[in-house]
């Protein structure tokens, strides 16, 4: 095992809440506000971990297991994700299938917890969550299939390593389309505008937020931290496709990877500032569109 590979997960553990801070700061700047401190999410997490909890009498152990299983799943997934050109801790053919499986487990746990409250708000949120993710998953995997074919490799680390500037020179449009598709999936999977609005305050319009209405204290801290880590995972995925990892030595690679992740966060912030949230009925079109882009890229990449 490469000791260097320990660095990406550790960085993710430390820096992922900062991503949310960066997004909020970008949004505030666009709106002409000063915005919350960059470290606000850390303060929130610290505060939540110090709190007690209130549970509904309707709930069972499923409600309590949701955040724990969700966070554990996303933590496990961290070990599969390379950063820039730094290889992941675990790499094997098909590791991204395990990654999507773990994210699926996280979703199942959260949906279970939401349904456990018996609240119709949370049931609605859960229903929308499975609806969106059922459409986002094909787009994600078709995009990955395109990348795998371009790189002729079957593990995330090797795909990232194999995609060099040569690929961008020769099949630039193919990779660009895939990156756009992955970006759309990132926005949908992480409950960002234009699919979901993390700042909305009306239960009926929420998706992710409404699922966690009844969670508080450490449970909610786990959820918040898990969401930050999930955003980091997707940002690292997009970054890994863009950085020509093969041509750099490890340390510049790491710096480039970090820079890429934060650039993605800034991009998310910009998108959230300049776009309105889509009507809910349009969301499938967005996600099927992402899949169509990735499939187009695949066809263009055929020899």
């Amino acid at each position: 095992m490469n000791l260097l590979s320990l660095i990406p997960p550790v960085l993710a553990l430390i820096l992922s809440p900062l991503l949310l801070g960066v997004i909020n700061r970008v949004k505030a700047r666009f709106a002409g506000r000063r915005g919350p401190p960059l470290l606000q999410v850390y303060y929130d997490l610290a505060k939540l971990l110090r709190k007690g909890a209130v549970y509904s009498r309707t709930t069972t152990w499923v409600f309590r297991a949701g955040p724990v299983v969700g966070l554990a799943a996303v933590l496990t997934a961290l070990c599969l994700m390379p950063l820039g050109g730094v290889p992941a801790l675990w790499k094997f053919p098909g590791d991204f299938i395990l990654l999507t499986g773990l994210l699926g487990l996280m979703r199942f746990a959260m949906v279970g917890a939401a349904l456990d409250t018996g609240s119709s708000f949370e049931g609605m949120g859960a229903s929308r969550e499975v609806w969106i993710s059922a459409l986002a998953e094909p787009a994600l995997l078709v995009a990955l299939a395109t990348l795998a074919r371009q790189a002729q490799e079957l593990s995330l680390t090797r795909i990232c390593a194999a995609l060099s500037e040569q690929h961008w020179l020769h099949t630039g449009p193919v990779l660009a389309l895939v990156v756009v598709a992955l970006g759309l999936v990132l926005l949908a999977e992480n409950a960002r505008i234009p699919v979901d609005d993390p700042n909305t305050h009306l239960e009926l319009t929420m998706i992710h937020e409404v699922m966690v209405l009844d969670h508080g204290g450490p449970d909610f801290a786990f959820i918040l931290y898990g969401a930050a880590l999930k955003l980091w995972l997707f940002a690292a995925l997009v970054t890994g496709m863009v950085i020509p990892a093969g041509s750099l030595s490890p340390w510049p690679n790491l710096v480039a990877g970090l820079g890429g992740v934060f650039l993605v966060a800034i991009g998310v912030g910009v998108v959230e500032s300049v776009m309105a949230r889509l009507r809910l009925l349009i969301v499938p079109q967005l996600l099927v569109g992402a899949g169509a882009l990735a499939a187009t890229a695949f066809l263009l990449g055929l020899k």
Binding site: P284, Q285, T296, L299
Partner: peptide, 10 residues
């Protein structure tokens, strides 16, 4: 429908 049209396009 639009979705079907899109898939048909692919």
């Amino acid at each position: 429908g639009y979705l079907t049209s899109l898939l048909a396009g692919v």
